[in-house]
Amino acid sequence: MKLKDIIGSLSLNVLTNLDDKEVTGVYISDMLSDVMSNAKAGNLWVTIQTHKNIVAAANLIDISAVIVTQGTRVPEETIDLANRYNVIIISTNDSTFALSGKLYQIGIK
């Protein structure tokens, strides 16, 4: 599924520059090693972490986009770094659980 379609159908807020990418699935975790170990290239990464290091992690394993849940404010420096590395960060007011349900409903399995 295309990232832009997901963003459109769930009305997510894009905080960084946006390229359209193919989304291969979803990985949910707030532990960075867990993401590094188990998320696959092209996955959406759903988390509440917002510090700069998420950009390095997402870039290293080619995450399609990071979705920050619960309306957590993402620091400016994280967004700046993400733009520099072409990492896409998206935010939503939904909880991780609520967002997961919606992602599943629109057909990401």
Binding site: M31, L32, D34, M36, S37, Q49, N53
Partner: peptide
């Protein structure tokens, strides 16, 4: 709290 220290670092390298 920042998401580090899951105790998966060295096991991840080994894997």
């Amino acid at each position: 709290a920042l998401g580090f220290g899951a105790g998966m670092g060295l096991p991840n390298i080994k894997k």
